[in-house]
């Protein structure tokens, strides 16, 4: 786990790092961070508890405990990763452990949008490509350089194209993934909408 955590800020165009593979479909956010760790009013200490129960059961053999995964920052997963609960604690825990990008066959929707909102790019690849990369990484630790502008990953002897939603790609390159200020630029339009919505007229201020 990285000792000093600095959240990403601004434009994100490149991510470099060691890969860590986590095999399995439908890995839900309860497994990524069990509910008991949600009893907190900030995300600071979540990194150490990521996959706590799975790691406990595997006693040192979980990918997140292996010596060769130390300092890894690019997570390689299979299908429907992050399904279940909407808890942002899940990507926050991964990020605080050291994950900066995820490559997978597919992602659950809310998990994906949480990752974008906190600055973790998620890329997709077909099932067999993911399996190949996971196998490769098991044999020779893969170190990737991801270029977001061109959706491309490079390593010593493996280069491949990555898929990313166009809107997400643009948001990382422009820094708009950190959405609040962009949204507030349209303050006038928001107020117009507030004044125009039919139900806000027939629902008087009851609260």
């Amino acid at each position: 786990m990285n000792q000093e955590f600095k959240p990403p800020r601004g434009k994100i165009s490149q991510i470099k790092g060691k890969c860590i593979s986590l095999i399995g479909n439908d890995i839900d956010t309860d497994r990524i961070i069990p509910a008991r760790f949600l009893k907190c009013i900030n995300f600071d200490s979540l990194g150490e508890s990521v996959f706590e129960d799975d790691r406990e059961l595997l006693r040192g053999k979980h990918p997140f405990d292996k010596e060769e995964s130390k300092d890894a920052s690019i997570l390689i997963v299979n299908s429907n990763f992050g399904c279940g609960s909407s808890r942002e604690h899940a990507p926050q825990a991964l990020m605080r452990w050291g994950i900066k990008a995820i490559i997978g066959e597919s992602f659950a929707e809310i998990f994906y949008s949480n990752c974008i909102a906190i600055g973790i790019p998620c890329f997709t690849l077909p099932k067999n490509s993911i399996k190949d990369i996971q196998k490769y990484n098991d044999n020779k630790n893969l170190f990737l350089e991801i270029d977001i502008e061109n959706s491309f990953a490079k390593s010593k002897d493996l280069n491949f194209k990555l898929e990313i939603k166009e809107s997400s790609r643009k948001m990382f390159l422009s820094g708009e993934w950190d959405a609040t200020s962009t949204l507030l630029e349209n303050e006038k339009l928001i107020e117009n909408k507030f004044n125009d919505l039919p139900y806000l007229k027939f629902n008087s201020n009851y609260l």
């Binding site: 808890r87 942002e88 809310i110 949008s113 909102a117 809107s167 948001m171 609040t180 949204l183």
Partner: peptide, 21 residues
Amino acid sequence: AFGIGTSQVRDVLASQTIAMN
């Protein structure tokens, strides 16, 4: 009606809007 993460809760509190496809 849909679930959102905490960063989007922040955005709704601040702007009553979110970015979504």
